[in-house]
Simulated scan of single mutants.
Amino acid sequence: MSKNENHEFKNIKYILTSTMRTKLIISIYEKEKNLEELRNELKKPSATILHGLKELENLNFVKKINKNYSLTSNGYLLAVNMLKLIENWYSINKNEIFWNRHDLKCIPKDLLKKLYQLKNSYCINSTNDDLSKALTTYIELLGESKNLKIILPIFSEIHIENLLNLVEKGIINNLSLITREEIIESINEHPKFKEILNLNNVKVTTLNLPINIFLTCSDEFISLTLFFKDGHYDDSQLLIDRSEEGATWGKSLFEYYLGKEDDKEKMIVE
């Protein structure tokens, strides 16, 4: 860490280790406020609030114009990143077991920094009483979908047959599939399944690299299942998000892997 980065780290730490300073930054981020508004909102005496405001003014995060307090440009940037940090932390803690038990190396760092976009996600967990709960839920979700983007890391007769049936019945209009070359080979070995690769509304991208992520993006939801840290696929936990932010995160992850095909083509040309 450079000298400047270390200085900024100390400033951020100084803010986050104080509930009052943190609340003041977030409150003023929403709109500029006077002392009375801050006192009524934070339920703290004027002396406590004024002390916190003075500390933030000394760091050039807050400025006072007439009787109102607002954020400086530095304060505004700090607030934006603080809120992302808080939302990230909330999102991680909300589904703590899911994130802790799985291998996350398959998710690019830029998207791990944006887990706040999955703050509305929730987990479906299979149980001893219902071992197929996650799978059943996933299949039900596909029945709601018209357009699908899927990263398929495993060969599964259940999944492939279900996708084929949904496409043939016209429930799914378009299917974009990213998978590994050996999975395509396995599909081709099954006369029952291989026709899915030749359907006009099915686009298949093959990658010759490990894909330890099962992602599905539709107009209605995204879902995610991952691998354990020992390399085995876990079908017992399904992460689902139906929000617009979640859709953005999922599509970004899909595009990231789709770009791996472009990288492969560039290498061939060169």
Results as ranks from 00 to 15, higher is better:
residue 138 Y to V: 11
residue 204 V to M: 03
residue 15 I to D: 08
residue 188 N to E: 14
residue 126 S to K: 11
residue 75 G to P: 09
residue 16 L to G: 09
residue 194 K to H: 04
residue 241 D to T: 15
residue 27 S to C: 04
residue 155 F to D: 02
residue 246 G to T: 11
residue 254 F to E: 07
residue 67 K to R: 13
residue 9 F to T: 13
residue 174 N to K: 05
residue 241 D to L: 10
residue 75 G to L: 09
residue 46 S to D: 08
residue 231 G to W: 00
residue 108 P to W: 03
residue 98 F to K: 01
residue 235 D to K: 13
residue 144 E to P: 04
residue 228 F to M: 13
residue 33 K to Y: 01
residue 201 N to V: 03
residue 267 M to V: 15
residue 256 Y to A: 01
residue 83 L to W: 00
residue 218 S to G: 13
residue 230 D to W: 04
residue 155 F to A: 10
residue 134 A to L: 07
residue 41 E to H: 01
residue 55 E to V: 06
residue 147 N to V: 09
residue 168 E to S: 07
residue 161 E to F: 05
residue 104 L to P: 07
residue 238 L to C: 05
residue 168 E to W: 05
residue 180 R to T: 10
residue 23 K to W: 02
residue 192 K to W: 01
residue 176 S to M: 00
residue 113 K to L: 11
residue 96 E to R: 00
residue 157 E to G: 02
residue 94 K to N: 05
residue 1 M to F: 01
residue 270 E to H: 13
residue 175 L to E: 06
residue 123 C to W: 01
residue 109 K to F: 02
residue 118 L to Y: 06
residue 185 E to I: 11
residue 209 L to R: 14
residue 163 L to D: 05
residue 128 N to E: 12
residue 251 K to W: 07
residue 262 D to T: 15
residue 48 T to S: 14
residue 88 N to L: 06
residue 253 L to D: 13
residue 164 L to V: 05
residue 56 L to V: 09
residue 63 K to V: 14
residue 163 L to M: 10
residue 237 Q to N: 14
residue 149 K to F: 03
residue 88 N to R: 02
residue 130 D to Y: 07
residue 155 F to E: 08
residue 38 L to S: 02
residue 51 H to L: 10
residue 115 L to V: 15
residue 246 G to N: 10
residue 231 G to I: 00
residue 97 I to K: 06
residue 189 E to V: 12
residue 71 L to R: 07
residue 192 K to A: 14
residue 218 S to T: 13
residue 57 E to I: 15
residue 105 K to I: 08
residue 189 E to P: 01
residue 250 G to P: 00
residue 228 F to V: 11
residue 92 I to C: 03
residue 135 L to D: 06
residue 161 E to M: 11
residue 6 N to R: 10
residue 43 K to D: 12
residue 127 T to M: 03
residue 120 N to F: 02
residue 62 V to F: 02
residue 118 L to N: 06
residue 256 Y to N: 07
residue 133 K to C: 08
residue 224 L to V: 01
residue 143 G to A: 14
residue 267 M to L: 15
residue 2 S to G: 10
residue 136 T to K: 09
residue 79 A to S: 15
residue 269 V to Y: 08
residue 259 G to W: 00
residue 260 K to A: 04
residue 112 L to M: 12
residue 32 E to G: 00
residue 33 K to L: 10
residue 68 N to F: 12
residue 188 N to G: 15
residue 157 E to S: 12
residue 266 K to A: 15
residue 206 T to G: 06
residue 102 H to S: 07
residue 106 C to M: 10
residue 16 L to R: 09
residue 4 N to I: 15
residue 238 L to E: 02
residue 134 A to W: 00
residue 61 F to S: 05
residue 132 S to N: 14
residue 151 I to F: 01
residue 149 K to H: 05
residue 163 L to A: 06
residue 170 G to P: 03
residue 111 L to W: 04
residue 74 N to H: 08
residue 243 S to F: 04
residue 124 I to F: 05
residue 229 K to Y: 01
residue 99 W to R: 04
residue 240 I to G: 11
residue 166 L to F: 04
residue 70 S to P: 02
residue 207 L to H: 00
